[in-house]
Design a protein around this nucleic acid. Structure first.
Lengths: 282, 282
DNA sequence: CAGTGGTCTAGACCACGGT
DNA sequence: CCGTGGTCTAGACCACTGC
């Protein structure tokens, strides 16, 4: 049996000319196999946009609604073409857009999948960490502190939180061979991350995003990072083993879900001497 | 009259099935209107690649050979389809690749054009410059020194220069309201940039790339930049008006032509306090 | 108004992955 | 072996640009 949903084969609204509205049939079974039925009422698309663009937007909202998981193939091109009553070429173009946005990846012979952003080594993008023998290494992590607090106005604004809402604040260090190389402050809206409010600190893993996904069903879809250079405060200095006032790179990240809603605020500090960044300009 | 070349309408090598080799007809007039005729011998394409990929590669080599200028539309999709004996869909896909690479831009109703990379504000990408009243400003530039020298081994390697070849070395400062904010060292292979070896220093403009294009017919197609943090040397400090040892951002750039051949090596230093960089991760 | 790229269709066949 | 996405075709019509 297939791991996909079966596209409905019921009534289709016929649309012919270019520029006509994008419609989909009334749905008997949804496009996936794990959600309840949705009807056409959920579409509020701008008819002035090309069909493939409307299709892209609708697919994205389905993805944001959790209609498919990253391990599951989304509906096939043929199914989508039937469902939306457009040709497969138009479906391909819509999917192309989402692939270009980093939302989907195609896999020939297997299907099309939701893609997580490659934070692979977000750290390696900025910091060159090597062990004593010169091999690149991924730092381990330790959560030093967790508190449930009212966030500052800045963080509340960045995370679009209500005035009364509380946040989970984590203080973390990342270590290489026992030596702290990065210090991190993380803020999460409590409502979305309740399981992390009580998780024993020792159960936090080196990578938080898999934890978000497993325990809180929150998938990071994209993030914005801003880099600056600062001088080490006495606190930074003692955590990172630097001289007070020595240059420190500050990486400031806001991570969002597929709907574009920000749900993690994070700042990372590391010695500027370990910093390097490469950009291609075209 | 059209600003394009007229595609030849002579013999076409017929290729039918997918995977067949990409061929073009023997050329009577070339694809543009400013170069001499080229024949099919100039194609050494890998038949294992999809046609649109071979087409992309051939177009890129034509662009690198200067077959079109950035102000001129390249051959139309229909012409290219006829010339290479492929459907316009395949041409579109090849052009899509080059657009994604930043090599071409399309303009509906006008044509498809060679695109220069947007260094718009390469500086603004990294440094936040503001005048006294808080408005963002573009620094002016002054060339302090020019010498014709044997480049260091590092620079010779980066620019793939022959052992005997000489380089033009420029030392520049960039100023805001008379205050030096960036110091730059630039190396160029002399052979490609002969006109700059004798140009009076006062005739150098704030932006060098338009100068490269106008005087030396060298178009920057792409560049790689590497950022690091250093401490100001006494020289840096006196040029930039900083304290010796204060943090400085070093931006190290190698710029290349459309064929991927590097032809400019540049390092830029500025106070780390004016630095900021933003990245989107997907 | 002619010519460009942009959108869209309805197919065909190929290459790959898993059963 | 079947089903997936990948390549490619040969059109049609639309939207924009510039003469």
């Amino acid at each position: 049996m297939n791991d996909r949903g079966n596209a409905a084969k019921s009534q289709w609204v016929k649309t012919l000319a270019h520029g006509g509205p994008l419609r989909c049939g009334t749905v008997v079974t949804p496009l996936n196999n794990c959600m309840n039925a949705m009807d056409t009422a959920s579409f509020k698309l701008d008819d002035r946009l090309p069909r493939y663009h409307q299709l892209r937007d609708d697919l994205l909202s389905r993805i944001a609604a959790g209609e498919w998981t990253p391990t599951q193939a989304i509906a096939t091109e043929a199914e989508l073409g039937q469902f939306y009553n457009v040709s497969t070429g138009t479906v391909r173009k819509a999917i192309d857009l989402l692939v270009a946005d980093g939302v989907l990846t195609r896999s020939q012979g297997r299907g099309t999948f939701i893609r997580r952003p490659r934070f692979d080594s977000s750290l390696f993008r900025f910091f060159r960490f090597k062990s004593r023998d010169g091999q690149p290494v991924r730092p381990t992590a330790r959560v030093l502190k967790r508190e449930i607090v009212k966030p500052s106005a800045e963080i509340r604004a960045a995370l679009k939180m209500k005035a009364t809402e509380k946040a989970i604040h984590l203080s973390r260090v990342r270590l290489i061979e026992g030596q702290a190389v990065l210090s991190e402050e993380i803020w999460l809206p409590r409502a979305r991350f309740e399981p992390l409010a009580t998780l024993p600190l020792d159960d936090f893993e080196d990578l938080l995003y898999p934890l978000y996904e497993r325990l809180c069903r929150q998938i990071v879809a994209s993030a914005t990072e801003i880099l600056r250079v600062e001088q080490a405060t006495p606190d930074d200095a003692s955590v990172l083993g630097l001289a007070t006032g020595s240059p420190v790179i500050l990486v400031h990240r806001v991570a969002s879900d597929f709907a574009g809603t920000p749900f993690e605020w994070r700042s990372t500090r590391g010695a500027a001497t370990t910093f390097q960044y490469q950009v291609e300009i075209r």
